[in-house]
């Protein structure tokens, strides 16, 4: 069912994602704070003493690049820019580029608080990555394919969220964690004066924080083809269903953010390894048994 998309989709992808990320950021910001990107464009870059400026800039640029590359396999309706045969792993690999990106942005400026932010993200990565990989594996297992198009196709009747709820929840949790956003925002937290983003100014800052919103939108959007049936749905056209479902996932994340204080990794990592990971393994096991029995 997944048809090849025309080439111009590849060109349209970054601006479309940027618009979606900006809309999400606006919806999340308190009234009047939406002009932040304008402000960054007007600002100068900052320099700190003995900084490794190329590395900091690399980190800042890598984050939006990672998000957009990951979005290549994200289908709108039933079409994506490129429906790679290993699309699920591709998404995972591109999202993993956030690890070096945040750490480099924290390391580069040679400032203690921003470095703490960078290291916090690595700790966070260790906590969320294994359960997240298991959640992605579970969805791929249910479809018997790593191709995102095939995963969507396998949900023609029954959405995966109905029989893999744990994997879906883990994916949502990981989406917030990999975008270091909401309850997982400690790598750029206020308690470390902005953390990894704390010393970035001007274009670097815009690229880094914008990349963060892109990553959140892409990771939340990935929940739609993996667990929420992609473009499947009654009445509306497929692309419309994708948009509606993505917006719903993002709205749920925004709602959750208002309800929760931030989660610190010195507490959360233990739970991630002792509770979330075994749960995700158990979910994968259940799905494997069901698939074998079919």
């Amino acid at each position: 069912m997944a048809e090849a998309a025309p080439l111009w989709w590849a060109l349209a992808l970054p601006p479309v994602l940027a618009v979606a990320a900006a809309a999400t950021a606006l919806a999340a910001a308190p009234a009047g704070h939406g002009v932040a990107p304008l402000r960054e464009l007007a600002r100068r870059r900052r320099r700190t003493v003995a900084a490794d400026a190329p590395l900091a800039t690399l980190g800042a640029v890598l984050l939006p690049l990672a998000a957009v590359s990951g979005a290549v396999v994200l289908p709108l309706g039933f079409r994506s820019v490129s429906d790679l045969a290993v699309g699920v792993v591709w998404f995972n690999a591109m999202a993993a580029l956030a690890w070096p990106a945040v750490w480099l942005a924290g390391w580069g400026p040679n400032s203690a608080l921003s470095l703490i932010g960078g290291y916090r993200f690595l700790a966070q990565g260790l906590a969320y990555e294994v359960p997240h990989m298991l959640a992605l594996t579970t969805a791929a297992l249910g479809a018997g394919s790593l191709r995102v198009g095939a995963v969507v196709e396998a949900q023609r009747g029954l959405w995966f969220v109905t029989w893999m709820p744990v994997a879906f929840a883990v994916h949502l949790l990981s989406a917030a964690a990999m975008a270091f956003w909401g309850p997982f925002d400690r790598p750029v937290g206020r308690d470390v004066a902005g953390g990894a983003a704390g010393e970035l100014g001007g274009a670097d800052r815009l690229s880094f924080l914008g990349g963060r919103w892109l990553l959140l939108v892409v990771a939340a959007g990935m929940a739609v083809p993996l667990f929420l049936g992609g473009g499947h749905g009654p009445l509306l056209p497929a692309w419309c269903w994708t948009l509606v479902k993505t917006a719903a996932v993002l709205a749920a994340l925004l709602w959750l953010r208002r309800r929760l204080p931030a989660v610190r990794m010195d507490r959360f990592a233990a739970v991630a390894w002792t509770v979330v990971t075994p749960l995700a393994v158990a979910q994968a096991l259940v799905v494997a048994v069901v698939v074998l029995g079919r």
Binding site: T48, V49, N110, S111, A112, L113
Partner: peptide
């Protein structure tokens, strides 16, 4: 333009500001 920021070594009597630098080699 903004001057390179950060304060190094022992902060003076005025007190330090937000954050100090990462301690690095004797460059």
């Amino acid at each position: 333009p903004a001057r390179p920021s950060g304060r190094h070594g022992g902060p003076g009597p005025g007190g330090p500001v937000v954050a100090g630098p990462v301690v690095a080699g004797p460059v």
